[in-house]
Design a protein around this nucleic acid. Structure first.
Lengths: 220, 220
DNA sequence: ACTCTGTTCGAACGAACGTTCGAATTATTC
DNA sequence: GAATAATTCGAACGTTCGTTCGAACAGAGT
């Protein structure tokens, strides 16, 4: 009776050989709804500032009822962050497939990031802003995804550097780019600002021309 | 007896005509120490995650004793953020004085920001990361400083735009620049990364060449 | 009708939270 | 050294926190 809350991940592993998509159970469905409501609350009040009673109110389920779907508040945050981050990485890989031009690949990276960011602004804010909230096991599993995403971007920029014989610090460039993009959750206003495509073009222009102009002599 | 905690700001206003610097009282001195310790704790655990008992332990003062120096946890955060932000704006103004070249002025802005950021990394993280933690009166007073700082940067970029006849969205450019710079608190490692001057040069190169190359046709 | 499994909830747990109060202690002034 | 003011503290306030427990409810299969 006590272990029902971990049922979901266990259930999904039935028949590891079958490639057919597993139909979402009622349990998975309801969990998804709760995650969505929790994302809103975490976004508004922050992880520490949001109480389980806030989540209960937002999702229309009793306080105790929530614990049927996950075993702790921390695991709930983990599920949100992991799903969000995994999705953005998966979409990026799909979009990069078949594109060879180095500059175009960087532009795809930027567009993918910003499009997902603005389409899922709340989840992405929770991912960006609560990056330090998880501990130990949860933290390290998420750090692994983060590192993979970071390495992909480093690869794209190194390719560009080689192709155009540029010289700049990849580390500073990548982290500057992440900063430009992730900071958007602090200022983007859908009633004032352009859509993701336009912003991606403008940021892409600034970043790429910044990195591609000047050629040798800078950085190391 | 109950109003002693507001003594400091009241005391400072004696003889508004005198320009001589007011010698820091014992009260001001001790408050400053507490603010420094509180900055460390807020930086490590976040504003919501840090308890008054954590602050008590860190500053070596009893829980009740803290309330002699400020009337609430929120006001404590406000004092930290206001002092940090005011200082960076004051220093910027002093550094910009006498410099006419538009590009140089932008570079001074970047250098000032990053130098202060890395020299006071904990305070700047608290300023960046806890930007939404304050409510109502506290929030609006801080928003005023923030707006002034933002407007200064907009002015610098508009000057550059006019001088070089460039075309780009000032808003996107300014906010991208802030993103590049403020994100640094998530990744900077003093044992791995260069000092503020070198990073400021690299970020300045990326940003300025990004904004200055291409000329007309982009943005609006 | 009965059982079994999956789902929901009211009530409560102990711990920790921000804040207050009056007394005790320390520094300053005469 | 007595009197006054500034500073510190132990103890407690009422509230809210994350989590647990056992009972109640629903639906499907027999």
């Amino acid at each position: 009776m006590g272990s029902t809350a971990t049922r979901s991940s266990g259930r999904r592993q039935r028949s590891a050989t079958a490639l057919a998509p597993v139909p979402p159970t009622r349990f998975d469905q309801r969990l998804k709804e709760i995650l969505a409501h929790a994302t809103d609350v975490f976004c508004q009040k922050g992880y520490e500032g949001a109480s389980m009673r806030d989540l209960s109110r937002a999702s229309g389920m009793s306080l105790a009822g929530l614990y049927y779907y996950f075993e702790s508040k921390e695991r709930l945050l983990f599920l949100i962050q992991k799903h969000t981050f995994s999705t953005i990485v998966r979409r990026l890989k799909a979009r990069l497939e078949g594109v060879d031009d180095a500059e175009e690949r960087v532009r795809i990276f930027i567009l993918n990031h910003l499009e997902y960011f603005l389409a899922n602004q709340q989840a992405m804010k929770v991912l960006s802003h609560e990056a330090e909230a998880l501990k130990n096991g949860f933290a390290s599993e998420l750090a692994a995804i983060k590192r993979e995403y970071y390495r992909i971007c480093v690869g794209l920029l190194d390719d560009l550097k080689r192709e155009r014989e540029l010289q700049f610090s990849t580390r500073i460039a990548v982290l500057s780019l992440f900063g430009m993009m992730n900071w958007i959750y602090t200022w983007h206003n859908p009633r004032v600002d352009a859509d993701a495509e336009a912003i991606a073009r403008e940021m892409g222009d600034i970043f790429l021309q910044g990195v591609m102009t000047g050629g040798r002599g800078r950085g190391r």
